[in-house]
Design a protein around this nucleic acid. Sequence first.
DNA 1: GATTAGGCTTCG
Length: 748
Amino acid sequence: MPVQLLKIVNGKPETPLPSHLQKEDLKHLQEGFGHTNKYFQGIVILYYPLTKLSDGRDFFKLVLQDMNNSCSRTDSINILIYGKMAEDCARVVRHGDTFVVAGFKLAKSPTVGEDGRHGCHLEVSEEAGSAIYSVAPKYAYTSLNHLKDGTIVNLYGVVKFFKPPYVSKGTDYCSVVTLVDPSNVKLTCTLFSGNLDSLPKIYKVGDIVRFHRIKIREYNGQMQGITSVGFASLTFDGTVGAPVVPRTSSKVYTFMDEEQKTVEELRVWAASNLSISGPAAKLSGVQPMLFFDLTCQLVGKAKVDGSSFLLKVWDGTKCPYPTWKVPVEARDLEGEKILLHQLRNLTVDVLVYDNHVQLAKSLKIGSFLRIYSIHTKQASAVDEDVSHIEFHLHGGTCYGRGIGVLPESNPDVKELKAFLESVELADSQNMESMSSVELDGTFNNVTVLTDHQDLNNTELKTILNSMAPQQYRIRAKLRTYKPQKLYQSIKLHCSKCKSLQEVPDGDGFDFILQGSAITAPNAELQNTSWYDSVMWTTQDEKQRKIVIHFVKHDEMLQQPEDTLLMIEGGTLKEVWKLTKIFKCVIPVRSTEDDLELLDLSAPFLLQGNIKYYGCKQCSTPKPIKSLSSIAAEQRPSWEPTEIAQVLGIELLQYVFIMKFTLIDGTGALNAYLFDYEKFFQIPASEILSNNFLQQKMQMTMNTLCPPGRKLDDLPWLECFIKSYNVRDGMKHQVYYQIFDTTVAEDVV
DNA sequence: GATTAGGCTTCG
């Protein structure tokens, strides 16, 4: 009989022990007494590794302590377990468990002189008709709003976010899991384990987990969960009505009606309180420039180079765009050659990078995967007329980017398997032509709406042969555009000196912040008539001093969402976090007389996701106290333009700069797009920090210039262009610019 | 029981 699990409710086992058994105290365990119908119950205080005896039988020794009077060593007794029972016991035993031992043989302990324990030991084995019960402890679960720093707790939660286990920079796998529960409090847990199996098997947002023995710590002002010794987890599908079957690596766990009820309640709560995304994207539904989770089967894999690795996968559907094929040496490609060939029109190449390579290498051909936050990117090779779609799993683990292996028992895998089996391989050969027919039917009559409907269309040939400047309405096709990487189209423009510059990256800002943190805050510049200041020192070895100055209005602090604050000594992350809470953040440093702005390579102001920059050439920064004039206004709106003005900053504007190559059969010309917001109806300032808007912009471009389309099949579009002269010394050239044009709503 | 990471997309 294997080790059985008993649950004690109100001091009595829920499933009773056999009725003939009676509890025996330690002091009554003596040679010469009959113990046939007696059991002994104690707490596991020590156990030894499972060993084999000379006769080949397994042997396991553990020490139980009498719970009633547990202070001296003589209150503990050695339990010797033989045969299969030894193995069973070794597998489930944990320090602190309560064990019940029945049907034992009592014998004189030969080690009493060394260990000072009870004079006898108990011998048990299956053959002797013994039984061992592990008494399930009564677990208490803490709701997420009652977590306290430094405690070790048990809890339930619904997965709101997760990173599938990945190889950490240390020795373990790491998985980050954010939970919520009906208290509406979030808890982000960082889970480590050297054993992939002992991390929770979470497959999607909405899954429900039960964590045992998770340590709670405070980190950055928030509670954080972290694995502690004995951490164990159960994971459940979060779908209401689905069978309540725990996914776990634990050999033994408590799971009874009470727990089942908790899971079902959490499912119901999550169904109406948590947004769980709809059905997962299929290859047939991909759009360029999207991040999505792909559930698929691995058909082939190959090494590419040190930092990237190729996975060939399919999900039975056909991607509507031409997809890229990553060139690899045939001998490096692992997988069934025949299948790879048969599925060549249905598989897509996914290139995984950096930290994902190690995991990707270990994947087994044929296994079912969920690739999280895979990126579809539109690109065109130099020698290609039409662009194609690339699938990337970029480095890093942001947004849960990673690879998870799904078991065959997973409902999504079952569904996928059934679908894959139904795909007639022969059909896929015909599908190529089919999808292009479908495409042609769907969007061929794209137009771009223009403001001046009174103008007639002019042929491009006529425009090219005319003097500048003039304005035209044209009907043309977008042959190609630059930059193809749309994020590169965003620049900063100074309306005063007309200069254009690249948007600085975060690293530069970080560097400037680090540099400014060296300047010690000047105590005299704290707590003035128009702002309140708070200063503290970080706990780490750097002992960094951070000061936040909250600007007041009418001598009162405002609501966070209306508040402008200035920060000294903050890191990039801290600044970023503050922008989530407060309306405006201005990084500053102390001088002798006033606070001052940092180098203008850094944003002088952050509002929400937007970083505002000043022109280095045209700005003459004024002392920070100039801001007090805005603070004194009736209702300070904290407009970036106004803040820039009082601080003597020439505000740089975010613009889209693109080059459109237009054709209409009579000629071709390049027209520039210089636009703040009108063309795409997306503010250029927001595009870099808003992935949704980036996708929207990419989709607009895909409609205007569909990837993978031949010249004849490109849609017509109408827009306004104006010609203008540019003279550079002796050189004279005519340029064209798109103006007063907005992409029609129904196009986007 | 030290470390890992400590969610908030790459840009190949």
